[in-house]
């Protein structure tokens, strides 16, 4: 990481020619001026902050006057504005994009999520700050930062470049040696509630015949499928709508010990993703589903996050530290 932004002075001493050091030191100012005046950011947005970033680039705030033109390819860019929440699934891609950028390269972490994870920092899938993934030069606070704050951050970066001083922050080194450890099944004992859902329950074996009958009555609109983790049972909730008659039908089934339910993906197209989500977050298997894979979490994830006993602050190396490591890092700050 360190030699990416190697200064010209180093090259001067490396050349070992009489006067080379002096000559190159004075050209360095020229090069720094050129670097700061044509920062080409990677057009790359993650979440809410990206919308404000777009607003900063467009009509009223017009970043073109600072010499900034967005590039879609990391090969042509030298500034990465990380605008939004960084998740463990995205962290790897951000690292790849950063590595693909040609040096000298700079990173701005925009928004509280990219700085520290904000209110999502103790969530299993969120990286608490992008500086656990790549080195960061400038932090722009805000949720989301206003365009004025964005411009201020960019001017700040230009100042840093002009004096040739970049000392980016990077945290990941402390957990580098534990790279192969993935998230373990991280559970805690919890008192679960009894079933409180009052709407209609149908028998698990009758599901398909019930659905076919309901669909014949015109309930074509699949609103959602979801599950709830109760004391001794997972309960699946289905909600179907009938647009023409303006009606809804809501029903539940109790998922037994075997955690297996018949799939609706052959009857409703939308059930495909909905069931994958329930499988991913609750671990309920759907018989007859063609493509039952994780949808939200990475493929190698262990455990099902929305189960009640699953700890919210599960770690995921190398990008997501444990709660203990995070607190330690915070006190060292």
């Amino acid at each position: 990481m360190g030699d990416v932004n190697k200064s010209l002075k180093d090259i001067g001493s490396f050349m070992k020619l009489p006067g080379a050091n002096l000559f190159i030191t004075s050209t360095e100012q020229l090069f720094n001026w050129a670097k700061k005046s044509s920062l080409w950011p990677l057009s790359f947005g993650l979440a809410c902050c990206a919308i404000e970033m777009m607003a900063t680039f467009s009509s009223r705030y017009d970043l073109d006057r600072l010499g900034m033109i967005t590039r879609a390819s990391p090969r042509q860019a030298d500034l990465m504005i990380v605008a939004g929440t960084v998740t463990v699934k995205m962290a790897e891609r951000i690292k790849t994009l950063y590595d693909q950028m040609a040096g000298p390269k700079y990173v701005i972490a925009a928004g509280s999520c990219a700085i520290s994870g904000d209110h999502y920092r103790h969530i299993y899938s969120v990286v608490p700050g992008v500086d656990w993934v790549i080195p960061v030069d400038v932090y722009v606070p805000g949720c989301p930062p206003t365009p004025e704050a964005f411009i201020d951050g960019i001017l700040e970066l230009q100042k840093i470049i002009a004096v040739g001083k970049t000392s980016p922050t990077f945290n990941a080194s402390t957990i580098e040696n534990q790279k192969n450890l993935l998230s373990e099944v991280n559970t805690k004992p919890i008192k679960k509630s009894e079933n409180v859902i009052e709407s209609k329950f149908i028998d698990k074996d009758e599901l398909l015949s019930f659905i076919l009958q309901v669909k014949k009555e015109g309930f074509n609109y699949l609103k959602f499928i979801t599950a709830t983790d109760f004391d001794n049972n997972l309960v699946l909730t289905y909600l179907l709508g009938n647009n023409e008659q303006n009606k809804e039908v809501e029903f539940n089934i109790k998922v037994g010990e075997d955690l297996k339910v018949d799939s609706l993906s052959q009857i409703y197209v939308g059930a495909d993703w909905q069931e994958r989500e329930v499988f991913d977050l609750f671990g309920i298997t759907f018989n007859g589903h063609q493509n039952l894979k994780r949808i939200m979490m990475p493929d190698d994830w262990i455990g099902h996050p929305l189960r009640k006993e699953y700890r919210m602050d599960t770690h995921y190396y190398p990008y997501r530290p444990t709660r203990k490591e995070y607190e330690k890092w915070k006190t060292e700050l």
């Binding site: 979440a47 699934k89 999502y120 969530i123 939200m296």
Partner: peptide, 15 residues
């Protein structure tokens, strides 16, 4: 492929 912005809001809302 999705889930690149899965922030676990549903889990957070249980806290």
């Amino acid at each position: 492929f999705l889930g690149y912005l899965h922030r676990g809001v549903e889990k957070l809302s249980e806290k």
